[in-house]
């Protein structure tokens, strides 16, 4: 029997420890989380959702969109990128020669090869990303060396990884992104694309409505089920309602009928458009795109 008590005690300690570690500690550490500030900006993040978008989160939850969609972007790391944006009175050849003259510096050794290759393949157009490196110090050094009047270059921080390369976001998702979500819908399967930034990627509410009503109407090979039950098909009144979906023949209702979104569909779309995790934060830095490379 002594044995038995020892075993029960061990089980209590085992579960109690994990309870303290994975329930209590995160609640204490993160439960009081406050707004963070956007990097290099006085703005706070995240923004509170509008009432309609908050209701939309409940439609998202109720219909289990998270069974197929994640709201979480991952990244592999961050890199420094040097982008030449202006040459002033200089010619591309001058820039090449000048940069090559820097190669003698011992400190630049790790990147000279990459630099040489990039410069060789350059046809002189601007803006031009002439170096991508994980070593921010070297990038800084080069950036300062080429600081000649007229020549403008930008040192940019970019996050890298497959999710980001797919255009699912400019940086990884962090805890702050979910501060106002009740419930948080991270998802665990990507049968559909990640939606953490769908509001940036597809900001057109009409597209979103069409897609929900008939995914194949906008993405021909879509395997997403339609959510027709979030819409009402009704007889056209005096005139076509302004909010009626503009469907092509294949998906249009019978003649004399129109498809209008219900309140739930509109709320859901408001929520989707509010999914924008695209500002740089201290814990997930990147340089927002101002000049398109």
């Amino acid at each position: 029997m002594k044995n038995g008590i020892a075993i029960v005690f061990a089980a209590v300690v085992a579960l109690g420890a994990s309870w303290c570690g994975l329930v209590l500690a995160p609640t204490l550490q993160l439960g009081g989380a406050k707004l963070t500030t956007v990097l290099n900006s006085p703005d706070t993040y995240p923004l509170q959702r509008t009432g309609e978008a908050s209701l939309g989160l409940q439609i998202y939850r109720a219909n289990g969109c998270a069974a197929c969609h994640t709201e979480q972007v991952r990244q592999d790391g961050i890199q420094a990128e040097l982008m030449l944006t202006a040459l002033g009175n200089y010619q591309p050849e001058d820039f090449k020669a000048f940069t090559e003259s820097l190669f003698v510096q011992q400190a630049l050794e790790p990147v000279t090869n990459a630099l040489a290759i990039n410069l060789k393949g350059w046809n002189g157009s601007l803006p031009f990303v002439f170096l991508t490196t994980s070593d921010k110090e070297i990038a800084d050094k080069i950036n300062q060396s080429i600081n000649v009047p007229g020549v403008k270059s930008e040192l940019r921080i970019v996050a890298t990884g497959a999710d980001l390369a797919r255009g699912w976001g400019p940086r990884r998702s962090v805890a702050a992104d979910y501060l106002y979500d009740q419930p948080v819908q991270l998802g665990r399967l990507r049968a559909g694309p990640d939606l953490a930034n769908i509001g940036v990627r597809q900001p057109d509410a009409n597209w979103q409505l069409l897609h929900l009503y008939a995914p194949k109407a906008v993405v021909p090979n879509s395997t997403m089920p339609s959510f027709k039950y979030l819409f009402a098909v009704r007889k056209i009144g005096a005139a076509l309602a302004p909010e009626a979906l503009k469907l092509n023949a294949e998906f249009a209702p019978a003649a004399g009928y129109e498809v209008v979104p219900t309140a739930a569909a509109k709320e859901l779309v408001a929520y989707l458009l509010s999914l924008r995790a695209n500002v740089p934060l201290y814990e997930a830095p990147f340089t927002p795109v101002t000049t398109k490379p």
């Binding site: 995160p26 805890a175 419930p183 948080v184 991270l186």
Partner: peptide
């Protein structure tokens, strides 16, 4: 008493 943010998925 739903906790804030990512505490939910952690629990």
């Amino acid at each position: 008493w739903l906790p804030r943010g990512v505490v939910q998925p952690v629990i």
